[in-house]
Design a protein around this nucleic acid. Structure first.
Lengths: 338, 338
DNA sequence: GCTGGCACTCGACTGTCGAGAGTGCCAGGA
DNA sequence: TCCTGGCACTCTCGACAGTCGAGTGCCAGC
């Protein structure tokens, strides 16, 4: 077990390195933080920390920088979550309150998060399966073609065009619409398959195949979890680190363009509480020099989706975590209100 | 007026520079293209081209690179649009045909364009005002709150929540829904304000204020041109040029994040035909070292939105223009079918 | 009007060197 | 036992000088 002072030294190293982005030496440490011991002592502690794998030297006779393991310890034991200031909270609330629809909420959130943390922000659209149904609409576009529109309690809207095997009358359609809504409104999307299972049977023989087609499309839309949408922003912030990682920016940008990767990334954090994945803890190759801070958000007490930021491992963890948590909270409020 | 051969020299310089990304000298030129004249002659031509401002030297005793003016001449007079190959066209068609809804079409298009051109792709969602109304839906969420859903012929869906000053019965709502649809379905959105103008007057006094509120929100949604959405992709391609412009990437990324800037960018090209804006021809500061190739696309013969790519001024113009044109054409087809 | 030749320029690259920062280790002291 | 000051060592970084080569402009000759 590391002594109290050594932990203190690690904390100091992380803080200094995050601030200056340069390897930090023993002398500078004792000067900037009042550690009450000499540089020589700190050097001994550093040697011990290096031995344990918490810090490393880029090369002999350079200062130390934290390793992924060092950041992990810092996040777990040494750092809290830094709450935002009152004015900041107020600003967030005001900014989000101006949104007119879900798209707007999401795009505002992503901009907000990118600006607050000065990093790349990711916001997932509320998941279909974890939302509840507000309304299902069926519109006749042509005799054998109709549009299916799903509206969730979080304001999300999905639409699909369905080609029907046989023409459908307006009456049958109205009937289907009414019965469908009667069964599913207010229910969670994940329950929908079970609820509509026997619906075709209650219709005339002639219409069954068409109704089945409609329901199949409906279920297919729900199953399409991979189609979960998300929005990213603040990629320009990546260039803030271009001076030491000119070649690292490319794989990160590439990873960010692959929705699948990002969804997996957010999905990995199992529960909806705040999760921090540091450097190599991220499975994806392009992201091994970045950290991901994510948290679930939702209109109620249950998370319907996640949001977070991606930044260099050398990030201000307490501040970032504070911002992410605050934004998630306010987005939840906004969604609950609408 | 420049002689035929000098134009040929300019063309050769542009082609070589685009290929190698390095200043091109007289000797290399005569070797790579069979110009049938000696390097010395080419040097004279180059001096003339430089005099006219078509090419420039980064520094004395280096090769020449084209100026914006040089690219402009190249695009206008020397280069055609390079059509895509059959397999490429087929691949585009197949890829786009797999889309399930408008969001999917747009996101596939942006990926496709980025991949084909290896540059940053921008795709604008079909404009509301230039589309026609397929359906207007009104849903009662709560006694004094309803949701307005607009569906366009291009498959775009917009929704807004409306808070009503007074409760509305289902009957009134159905009435409103029917009359509203009766008036506007099939019409262009730009006509909607005129068409619904006198609608409140045909209702009972009690409901008029509510109906006005609904209509106000409807019109507001239409007026919100700045809310025109667009999607970008392929930003990772920017890093392909990071070696010579490590500092240029940042303003570009910043510009790309500002939807307003991009919309203005696409909007500047007035008609829907192919437009190329080179370097300083772009008003926005961050984009003065990039070129923008854009074109309108639409489900019919009229453009409902634009798409294009942003790349370095040193880009393969014929190839890029070919890809942009082809993609726009196929997207138009897909939209017309759905 | 084209060509070969020639002198010139300037950036890219290389090797050397000193300054400075940081380290590890050791012996002495609380 | 733990901290401290001192000292020799290592390594990076920037400055500087010198070389190399690509490319140019100009000129005389065909």
């Amino acid at each position: 077990m590391l002594s109290e002072r050594r932990l203190e030294v690690l904390r100091a190293i992380v803080q200094d390195y995050v601030g200056t982005q340069e390897p930090v030496g023993s002398k500078a440490l004792t000067e900037r933080h009042n550690l009450k011991v000499s540089p020589a002592t700190v050097r001994n502690d550093m040697a011990a920390l290096e031995e344990e794998g918490y810090i490393a030297q880029p090369h002999t006779s350079a200062g130390r920088i934290p390793t992924d393991k060092g950041y992990r310890l810092f996040v777990d034991k040494l750092a809290g979550v830094k709450p935002l200031s009152k004015p900041e909270r107020r600003a967030i609330q005001n900014f989000l309150a101006g949104a007119v629809d879900l798209d707007d909420v999401v795009s505002r959130t992503v901009r907000l998060l990118a600006q607050l943390t000065r990093q790349v922000a990711i916001v997932q659209y509320p998941s279909l399966t974890r939302s509840t149904v507000r309304h299902v609409e069926l519109l006749l576009l042509a005799p054998t073609r109709l549009m299916l529109v799903l509206i969730t309690d979080t304001g999300r809207v999905e639409q699909r065009v369905v080609d029907c095997p046989a023409p459908l009358t307006e009456t049958t359609l109205a009937d289907l619409r009414a019965r469908l809504n009667g069964r599913v409104v207010g229910e969670r999307f994940s329950e929908v398959p079970r609820l509509v299972q026997d619906l075709p049977e209650s219709f005339e023989q002639d219409d069954r195949s068409t109704i089945s087609a409609v329901l199949a499309t409906l279920l297919e839309t729900l199953v399409e979890e991979p189609e979960e949408r998300l929005v990213i922003g603040g990629t320009a912030n990546l260039t803030r680190f271009v001076h030491d990682f000119p070649l690292t920016i490319r794989p990160v940008l590439e990873a960010l363009e692959e929705q699948v990767v990002l969804l997996k990334l957010l999905g990995e954090a199992k529960d909806s509480s705040m999760t921090v994945r540091i450097g190599h803890e991220n499975a994806h190759e392009g992201l091994t020099s970045t950290s991901v801070v994510s948290v679930g958000y939702g209109s109620g007490n249950e998370a319907v989706a996640k949001l977070g930021v991606v930044g260099p491992t050398r990030m201000d963890y307490p501040g970032t975590m504070g911002a992410v948590r605050a934004v998630a909270r306010y987005v939840g409020q906004i969604l609950a209100e609408s």
